[in-house]
Design a protein around this nucleic acid. Sequence first.
DNA 1: AATTTTATGATTGACTTCGATCATATAATT
DNA 2: AATTATATGATCGAAGTCAATCATAAAATT
Lengths: 251, 251
Amino acid sequence: MIDERREAITLLLRDRAYLPVAELCKRFRISEATARRDLEALSRQKSVVRTFGGALVDYDRRFASFADRLKLAATAKGKIAKRAVELIRPGMTIFLDAGTTTFTLAGLLQKNPLALTVVTNSLAVGEKLAHVPTIEVSLLGGRLLPNQAVLLGDIANKSAAMHHFDFAFLSAEAFDAEGVWNSADNVVELERAVMERSTRHAMCVDSRKLGKQAPALLAAWKKIDLLITDVLLDEARAAGVDVDNDHYLLA
Amino acid sequence: MIDERREAITLLLRDRAYLPVAELCKRFRISEATARRDLEALSRQKSVVRTFGGALVDYDRRFASFADRLKLAATAKGKIAKRAVELIRPGMTIFLDAGTTTFTLAGLLQKNPLALTVVTNSLAVGEKLAHVPTIEVSLLGGRLLPNQAVLLGDIANKSAAMHHFDFAFLSAEAFDAEGVWNSADNVVELERAVMERSTRHAMCVDSRKLGKQAPALLAAWKKIDLLITDVLLDEARAAGVDVDNDHYLLA
DNA sequence: AATTTTATGATTGACTTCGATCATATAATT
DNA sequence: AATTATATGATCGAAGTCAATCATAAAATT
């Protein structure tokens, strides 16, 4: 009973964006106290955000704990993103991967607009830049993953082949002596398709990911154009990362 | 001064989704009264929605006055959408066009889920159905139009060719003796590309659009599989609409 | 059946927000 | 410079919201 109701509330919230306590009472024939208790419970489990007098969908929740991940190593991500934008020249067509670092990069582009074409498989990135007048945004096609707002799959891979990128900014889950890793096969398949269509590409990974592995190997070091990270070159090399100065950028 | 500040507020809100009055005061060194006046003004011009203690981005505004258009002829759209879902069988791959009627249709699918593959060029439709467990959602690729959350352009057209649809549900701006019309060339180009890849297609248009024209002719009547509308067949034929009973469905 | 746990509704007082009103300050117009 | 219009801040009573507490009802456990 109680779980059903709370389920119904989150469902309702998905459509409504905002839900006042008073309306909750009317809709479910519930006292204010219970309504508040429901909202408190839901906000505790992070599926909604409380406001004074109501609640709203955690906007960024649509991107599966995106907000939380954004906060992790936020300063490192910020530095990496900053280095990355410095590589971007007006008129370029760039690819922005799905990921928190590239999302941060998109934030920088939004604040300091350049004339660009941006292609992405992330709805978060796309929607962030769609309003910027100087930027033309294209989305890849493909399967829309539930709770992630990311496009993947065969069609996404084929979609990538329909573009050419001057620069691709890719994110990753881990990097070690073998190379750069990511979370799933379909993710690295897309990233490889993008790399093939790019003049240059950069891997944007922060120090938390050094020395780790993830389920799918994206690329060995010799295939990687540029590593942008907050790890010092010496430290990276000590961990077996096979990059030289020409393929490395300190954030 | 005042306009700049209000501009800044909407900009801030784009990132934040929610903005409490108190924070507004701090950020802009402003009294509560002014903060409230700003929010009231912005909500009057519909760019934000007021809540008790703050304001939030008009969620649906991301889809350019989508909310307003949804309300127009809502009952007719509801009926049309209902007729349309009745045509959908489990296992089908269907295309849902961008538009308020097809968005309503998506709402019905969300409430009464079938096992389906849904392809769309509308982010609103895609995000609405992405969470439904039985439905696999694919987005077309293409240019993301600012303030519309719709994918269009050459790449979108080519993307359409990567699928095959058992049924395509298309929306339109107008219909008269000549056929069915829509708002722009790039819109009808995509719709034609979709029609070519569909076993069947249905035009979903409500009575307000009868006897009108729009900038681009989508298709003449002889090329149209099915018209779903709340206009009676006799009335439609009286207005020159060249459909017979086999190609017509009353909503 | 008795007992414990959980969910709910009602009440309370503290706190917050609201809109209205008024006085002041700043900007625009004459 | 004087006047008018607009924007702002402060105050205040009304109304709304909150968390806490308590009593009751329903459900689960024994």
